[in-house]
């Protein structure tokens, strides 16, 4: 069968989600952000909640996320996304509110806001994109940087005696009674992407059922920050990140 006979509108099985805008993403080639944006857009489209969703973008590469997903956005000061989401959700309780944050944003300067929003059990969804460094500013060490990991501020590797231990913020969040669903996922292959999409869908449904805060950590790669090719970065993530940041549900109630 000729390719021309296959490429017809009636045979289309997968394409760009209409909730995504036409803009070209500013992220580096192979960046996990694009994949996670796409999953959020697909879940929003499938649930039919495009006009009922408010998202809070962080400080970090995803600060421009409002250019790419065609929903309502607010942009929070560094780390304060969970506080803004609290306000948005309390003023508009019938809307779906989620935050989209990196590890430098959520787990360093935003620790207080995040932990207290989760502890209060705000009916919001928090997406943590964990690439173990500050990607936007040049690959500095973040609290979630692995032991021994080389970054621009730890050129000889993260030294526990000097820099402390990597923070498993998701495990901390899972201890809090306000959270209903805490999970750690990834997007490096098709199976992982589909699992992450299911997790996002579940989190949005929890939010509608007022079950409490849903928290999704997506273990991600930052190939330019890690100084690797996109494919090698995904491999490095599987070999080094997954043994420490174990994938799976930490809490589901």
């Amino acid at each position: 069968m000729d390719v021309k006979d296959i490429i017809k509108p009636e045979n289309k099985v997968y394409g760009k989600c209409p909730v995504l805008t036409e803009r070209v993403l500013h992220y580096c080639p192979g960046c996990s952000h694009g994949t996670i944006h796409k999953l959020l857009a697909e879940v929003i489209q499938e649930m039919g909640i495009q006009d009922k969703t408010i998202a809070i973008s962080p400080v970090g590469c995803a600060v421009f996320a409002y250019n790419y997903i065609d929903i309502d956005w607010q942009q929070a000061p560094h780390g304060r996304a969970a506080a803004l989401a609290t306000g948005a959700k309390r003023i508009c309780p019938d809307k779906y509110v989620f935050t989209y944050q990196g590890d430098g944003d959520l787990s360093a300067i935003g620790t207080a806001e995040t932990i207290h929003a989760c502890n209060r059990g705000e009916n919001i969804v928090i997406i943590l994109v964990n690439n173990a460094i500050y990607g936007m500013t040049g690959g500095q060490m973040s609290p979630l940087t692995l032991e021994g990991q080389v970054t621009s501020t730890t050129p000889y590797g993260r030294d526990i005696a000097l820099n402390g231990y990597p923070l498993k913020i998701t495990n901390l969040i899972a201890q809090l009674d306000g959270t209903c669903y805490v999970t750690r996922q990834s997007v490096q292959n098709a199976a992982a992407v589909r699992k992450t999409k299911k997790a996002i869908r579940k989190a949005f449904e929890n939010s509608a059922q007022k079950k409490g805060t849903s928290f999704i950590e997506v273990v991600s790669s930052c190939n330019s920050g890690w100084k690797l090719s996109p494919v090698d970065a995904n491999k490095w993530m599987e070999d080094n990140m997954f043994p420490f940041y174990e994938l799976g549900d930490l809490k589901d109630k």
């Binding site: 296959i6 997968y14 796409k38």
Partner: peptide, 26 residues
């Protein structure tokens, strides 16, 4: 092109949503 089964894995992992997949039963 003759090996493609239209499984959509490529489009699913594409960060920039640039791939559209078509599939037919033969």
């Amino acid at each position: 092109p003759e090996e493609c089964t239209g499984c959509t894995n490529c489009a699913t992992v594409c960060p920039d949503s640039v791939i559209t997949v078509y599939r037919v039963k033969v």
